[in-house]
Simulated scan of single mutants.
Amino acid sequence: MDNVLSFRRGHTPLLISMPHPGILLTPAVEAGLVEAALERPDTDWHIPLLYDFAAGMGVGTLEACYSRYVIDLNRPEDDAPLYASATTGLYPATLFDGEPLYRAGMEPSAEERARYLEEIWRPYHQTLAAELARLKAEFGYALLFDAHSIRSSVPRLFDGLLPDFNLGTNSGASCAEALAQRLRSVCAGAADYSHVLNGRFKGGHITRHYGQPDQHIHAVQLELSQCTYMEEQLPYDYREDLAEPTQVVLRQLLQAMLDWGRERYGR
């Protein structure tokens, strides 16, 4: 498959992973989706644009181009559940609101889905693993920031309104506690925004699998409420007036990771 991912190498120990901004569909998926799903409502809209300042910081980026409706890159390949509460799987069957994703009998075949695993999921994870290994070889450590966003209200997934900044470290297992607290302090200093550490979103497969602080690879997920930078309803417009102050905090988070890494590892 063409246009599976977009990868830009940086010159710092930090890599941003963006597994869910893609909107491309395969013919088999597009043919079977219900009408509401064709609008891709569960996309992490505009995430590459929101983080476009990262290049100037020397931070690398890895961006998925296919929709999570084809295959979810933040789920393990064996589709083991990550949460005890409502969630979606490697091959999503429902929208976030719980409605069916496909018209009856129109799901892609097992053969199609096996191809998505080989040609979309594996290249993303191979690129991610190789770049983290390269960073660790060059710097002695690697930092991974898994960038996500979601509507501020999804009653099936969480009660009430989601905090603006939702940091996840797999309950402390995916990065050093000192780094997690450094990032939490950044969010606490952003008076106009709410935040939580390891709340509803503790980190998906990418954070849990690649975060190995004992091996000097530290991973953090940020689930950002979409009301902080865009319109949450169709046509999902990017809001520069909202995004600019949010980018200030995002830049501070990335800089805090870089500063912590230099202090901890001396480079």
Rank of each mutant, 00 (worst) to 15 (best):
N3T: 09
V4S: 03
R8Y: 06
R9N: 04
H11N: 15
P13M: 12
P13T: 13
H20I: 08
L25P: 04
L25N: 07
P27A: 13
A28I: 01
A31E: 14
G32L: 06
E35K: 14
A36E: 14
E39S: 15
R40E: 13
D42L: 08
D42H: 12
D42K: 09
T43F: 10
D44N: 13
I47H: 05
L49W: 05
L49R: 15
L50S: 04
Y51I: 03
M57E: 15
G58W: 06
G60K: 04
A64R: 00
A64Y: 08
C65A: 07
R68E: 02
R68F: 03
Y69W: 06
Y69K: 00
I71C: 05
D79V: 09
P81R: 14
P81C: 13
L82G: 13
T87M: 08
T88Q: 02
T88G: 00
Y91R: 01
A93T: 14
D97R: 05
D97E: 02
E99C: 12
E99S: 15
L101S: 09
L101I: 08
A104T: 11
A104V: 07
G105K: 10
A110K: 08
E111H: 07
E111P: 04
E112K: 01
R115L: 11
Y116G: 01
L117W: 01
W121G: 04
R122W: 11
A129H: 09
A129G: 13
A129R: 10
E131F: 06
L132I: 05
A133V: 04
A133P: 03
A133W: 03
R134K: 06
K136R: 15
E138V: 04
G140S: 10
L144V: 06
H148F: 08
S149Y: 10
I150D: 00
G160Q: 06
L162V: 10
L162Q: 15
F165W: 05
F165Q: 02
G168V: 08
E177F: 05
E177R: 14
A178P: 01
L179D: 00
L179T: 01
L183I: 09
A188I: 05
A191G: 09
A191K: 15
D192Y: 00
H195K: 01
L197S: 02
R200S: 05
K202D: 09
G204Y: 02
H218G: 08
A219H: 06
Q221E: 06
L222E: 04
L224A: 04
Q226Y: 04
E231F: 03
E231D: 14
Q233Y: 00
Y236D: 03
Y236M: 00
D237Y: 02
Y238I: 03
D241Y: 00
E244V: 11
P245C: 05
Q247C: 11
V248H: 11
Q252C: 11
L253I: 14
L254K: 10
L254G: 08
Q255M: 14
A256R: 12
M257F: 09
D259V: 13
W260N: 07
G261K: 03
E263Q: 15
Y265V: 14
Y265G: 13
